[in-house]
């Protein structure tokens, strides 16, 4: 057990918006956790980083998308937004292209984040 155990909730978001409901499901769990008084940290990994790209709109058939939910995170004081730097660059994005201020994490830090959270929800 690492000494800096963090008993906040880590919600890992690995799926892109619009294409499936995984991202929405993960964000919902994060919001519920925060509403129940847990400290929630988000980690965007893989295609999940695409959730944060600015300029997102409703789907062609009017599907709501997840960008409105991201704007609500602050209200739930979810402010620890971690983003996998490698996943971002692989997809041609930088932190400036994102809808929220984020903390970029590198390969060395990624395992530490998993190791120090005592409850991890992987979407």
């Amino acid at each position: 057990m690492s000494d800096t155990t963090d008993n906040s909730m880590l919600v890992v978001l690995r799926h892109a918006p619009h294409g499936s409901s995984w991202l929405r499901e993960g964000l919902d769990v994060a919001l519920v956790g925060a509403a129940l008084g847990k400290k929630v940290h988000l980690l965007f990994l893989g295609d999940g980083v695409l959730a944060l790209a600015t300029g997102q709109q409703h789907g062609p058939l009017g599907q709501k998308g997840t960008h409105p939910t991201l704007d609500m995170l602050e209200m739930y004081d979810i402010d620890m937004i971690l983003v996998d730097g490698k996943a971002l660059t692989q997809r041609g994005l930088t932190a400036d292209d994102l809808q929220l201020p984020v903390s970029l994490i590198d390969d060395a830090t990624l395992p530490e984040i998993f190791a120090r959270h005592s409850s991890i929800y992987n979407f």
Binding site: R14, L45, D84, K86, P111, F114
Partner: peptide
Amino acid sequence: SRVPLDTLRAMGDND
């Protein structure tokens, strides 16, 4: 799938 790549990246030394 590319998911295994991220799994390996997330694993700690004794996971």
